[in-house]
Design a protein around this nucleic acid. Structure first.
Lengths: 331, 331
DNA sequence: TAAACTCGAGTCG
DNA sequence: CCGACTCGAGTTT
């Protein structure tokens, strides 16, 4: 009977924090809070771009007519930006394409602006940079979600009195965790602890060799020192049977992106399952998302019931997240 | 033997234009061309935003100190934009949240700028608007992909001497197609023709009731007049057995987005197949993408071979697209 | 000019 | 807001 209970516990542990699909749906209040903090971050990150624009205007103001801009080599990159070319697009253009783009900017927009050409240049520069800023913020959103997960994991380990060490992303060394590591989540790339004498090592954003894709979070049955970076084939992450659980984490708060990104996550999880299945392995998979809408909540819950997915939680719900961390730590 | 040939033709028609997975991969030249046309579109769409910024500066210049901005009700929305709040985020904020955001903008960025506060306001406004512009361009990218598909479909119908009519998105009426419809793809929402006395009606961006999701393109076994908009349950699209083929179309050119969006498309296609399967139906599914990378090309090709997918093409390859249109028209 | 990750800026039914 | 569509702005490994 004890075994039976144990089995039940590990099979349906999501029921501890999810009573139905509705528990997974993100509340309006959390969405609102997410958008507010997003705007705050954006303001902070905007300042360097404003400075860039000021510098550009200052340099451009030294000349009389737009056509002379071509001769100021130090602002060529900024001119290209003002002509609507993102840093991403830049990589695909030839020198000639770039010169053409700048020429079009001057002919179509700066010369018509006459004496206001410096302002026009600054405006168009900022429009393109605004899109850059958006990209930076989107990346930051992902990082913040990961940090929230980390903080909750560490808190749960601490509460359970389990000692841990963490992999520092800069030094690449494992450091023993202690209460006074403030903001440790900022540099944390991995986490390791013991579960009744079994080593557990968790790594973020790992390219899983058997899947040939990056996975947000992997829990391995390995000691921290068995994990070696990159192409070292002796590292524990090269052995598929070491994988205990793999997670897809979506930190975005936008409800409009919820289903879109869940569809992506679902494909990613399917690739993972398929790759491990080819080795007759069935590691656990789980999903954590900050933006969960009704229809996808039903899909997730159905997958849990069908055991296609081992666990799930809404990142904005602390109780769900704690319960999930407890589950993960005790796998 | 004739039947055998026929069967072979309909089952593996993708082989007519795809010799291996490598045929699907987008060439560098097409990627480059895509980014160039993207920059051109961005320039055109940028102008209204530049005008907005000029207007904002002009109004803001009438006052002496930043704090007075709060009193100019006509620019409240612009102030919110300058404080890093997108139109999307706005919807989730309360009046109080908005006022707080504006207050922070003034205190943290405009007052420190002293006499240059009008410039600072304009810069921050443009940064946020630049992100808006990016969103507008992303939507446009999708529309352009759809139009390319439409042009190729019409050209293929014309070449095969098949007459057609099209559904106009504004008038909501079916119009007989003719050679002199220039730019008809811009307003085209649907297309209809006959295939050896069987009516074929194709609708873009249709919410398929049985799937409860929007599908980029649906080919129905129905006469055009049997298609009625929206919630009319007598419309042909309410009858699952009328669906002949459903497509996922990805018009984006960015290689970095290729796998991301293919993962989404793959989930969408799986939802479609699953929903129809619940009615014992197996409509054809196909994928067209402008950005196709190696690894996903292999996945697509494997799905074709396994008949999980009925057809596929690279949107940037005219030969592939024509072959696919021929297949679609003759289904 | 690797490849595949981050996610929300828009849009429309 | 209601959900689910458009896709590339960044980023990492």
């Amino acid at each position: 009977m004890c075994l039976c209970m144990e089995k039940k516990r590990t099979n349906f542990d999501y029921k501890k924090h999810l009573s139905s699909w509705e528990s997974l749906v993100t509340s309006y209040e959390q969405t609102r809070a997410g958008f507010i903090s997003l705007a705050l971050e954006k303001n902070r990150k905007a300042t360097p771009f404003v400075e860039e624009a000021k510098a550009l205007k200052s340099i451009a103001s030294t000349i009389e007519s737009p056509i002379e801009l071509i001769n100021i080599t130090q602002i060529k990159s900024a001119l290209l930006t003002a002509s609507g070319v993102s840093d991403k697009a830049k990589k695909y253009l030839t020198e000639n394409d770039k010169n053409e783009a700048i020429k079009r900017l001057i002919e179509n927009f700066l010369e018509p602006a006459a004496k206001d050409f410096v302002d026009e240049l600054g405006y168009r520069f900022l429009l393109t940079r605004g899109d850059s800023l958006g990209g930076i913020i989107r990346n930051l959103g992902g990082v913040l979600g990961e940090r929230k997960m980390t903080r909750m994991l560490i808190a749960t380990l601490s509460i359970q009195g389990i000692s841990y060490c963490y992999l520092h992303s800069k030094s690449k060394e494992w450091i023993v965790g202690s209460q006074d590591d403030a903001d440790v989540e900022i540099f944390l790339k991995g986490l390791s602890w013991n579960k009744s004498n079994q080593a557990r090592t968790l790594i973020y954003n790992l390219t899983v060799p058997i899947v040939k894709k990056n996975v947000d979070l992997c829990l391995l049955d390995a000691k921290p020192e068995q994990f070696m970076r990159r192409n070292n084939k002796n590292s524990c992450h090269y052995f598929p049977s070491n994988y205990i659980a793999l997670e897809e984490l979506k930190g975005g708060i936008d409800p409009a992106g919820a289903d879109e990104h869940w569809k992506t996550a679902n494909s990613a999880l399917n690739r993972i399952k398929k790759a491990f299945l080819s080795n007759d392995l069935h590691p656990k998979t789980f999903f954590i998302g900050a933006a969960i809408e009704k229809a996808m909540a039903k899909e997730i819950f159905n997958q849990l019931d069908a055991k296609h997915l081992s666990n799930a939680a809404n990142l904005t719900d602390d109780n769900q997240l704690i319960s999930l961390c407890e589950w993960l730590i005790n796998l």
